[in-house]
Amino acid sequence: MSCPICNKDTDPKYRPFCSKRCADLDLAKWLTGSYAIPSAQEDDDEALSEALEEEQRKPH
């Protein structure tokens, strides 16, 4: 198995990474939002938010 960051052989101590440096780089990517799982729900949330705002503007 190779390190997903630099493609060197992995070290059992830091598996699946080769070193603490690569493990920390990967963690930093997660914490800064560089990695993201695409979701269609974001569009749904935006549409719902717009609908709620429009509903609040209407007189009751």
Rank of each mutant, 00 (worst) to 15 (best):
34 S>Y: 06
59 P>Y: 01
55 E>L: 01
56 Q>M: 12
24 D>Y: 06
31 L>H: 10
55 E>F: 06
48 L>V: 09
2 S>P: 05
49 S>W: 01
55 E>V: 02
9 D>R: 01
49 S>H: 02
44 D>Q: 12
10 T>E: 01
55 E>Q: 05
47 A>I: 11
24 D>K: 13
18 C>W: 04
40 A>S: 14
27 L>W: 02
9 D>Y: 00
26 D>W: 10
10 T>A: 11
10 T>N: 10
56 Q>C: 05
5 I>N: 09
31 L>P: 11
20 K>F: 11
6 C>A: 07
26 D>Y: 09
42 E>P: 03
25 L>F: 04
27 L>K: 09
8 K>L: 09
36 A>I: 03
24 D>I: 01
41 Q>G: 13
47 A>K: 11
35 Y>A: 13
5 I>M: 10
21 R>T: 15
24 D>F: 01
39 S>Y: 05
57 R>C: 03
59 P>F: 00
51 A>M: 05
15 R>W: 12
15 R>H: 15
44 D>R: 01
20 K>G: 14
34 S>F: 03
25 L>K: 09
2 S>E: 15
32 T>K: 06
15 R>N: 15
49 S>V: 03
24 D>L: 14
26 D>S: 14
19 S>C: 12
38 P>R: 00
29 K>H: 04
58 K>A: 10
52 L>N: 10
27 L>I: 12
12 P>N: 02
28 A>E: 13
60 H>S: 11
57 R>G: 12
18 C>V: 08
54 E>M: 02
1 M>A: 14
3 C>W: 00
36 A>H: 04
45 D>N: 07
22 C>G: 10
58 K>C: 05
11 D>A: 06
32 T>G: 12
10 T>R: 15
10 T>F: 00
25 L>M: 11
17 F>L: 09
44 D>S: 13
14 Y>F: 12
9 D>N: 06
27 L>R: 07
36 A>M: 09
2 S>R: 03
45 D>K: 06
37 I>P: 14
58 K>W: 08
18 C>N: 08
35 Y>L: 12
36 A>Y: 06
36 A>R: 01
55 E>G: 09
22 C>W: 00
49 S>M: 06
4 P>H: 01
24 D>S: 14
39 S>F: 03
55 E>K: 06
1 M>F: 09
37 I>L: 07
